[in-house]
Amino acid sequence: MTNVTMTVNGKSVSAPAEGRTLLVEYLRTGLGLTGTHVGCDTSQCGACVVHVDGRAVKSCTVFAMDVEGSDVRTIEGMANADGSLGVVQQAFQDHHGLQCGFCTPGMVMTTAALLAENPRPSEAEVRHGLEGNICRCTGYHNIVKAVLAASGQDADAIAAQ
């Protein structure tokens, strides 16, 4: 084990890791940031998505040592400074975009990255943008609405078309 240092949610952190330690293990076990989840072992489900240097990545498919020194953001760092829900988080609550909550952190992180690149996506772009995040509860209806709403569009009107 050696200590690996990076910036997580704006704070410089350090925790022990082996070569094989995945970023998600580093976050969950090393730092106690259990909001990032593991839902599969084939890099498909997206429950573990975090941002590394501003880009969404699957933290179950990245070695912690490979992102040493990077700027990492997790679900725990997505609320506003006053603790209130951020725009994406609030849209998910407003539109009932989550049920069991397990895929939710990954959905929020993917959505935030999607909207940073494409601030006003079409329904098709949202659905395509979420293809790496699996939800078993919602049938995606309200997740897609939440993403559209978070981009400032009239989600109800788009869904009704």
């Binding site: 940031l33 909001g35 593991v38 998910f92 989550l98």
Partner: peptide, 21 residues
Amino acid sequence: TKRREDVRFLTGRGVYTDDLT
């Protein structure tokens, strides 16, 4: 009514079995 449980799930504060140490 909007769901009260959402706040913890949306902020990474849900506690699932594997989250416990």
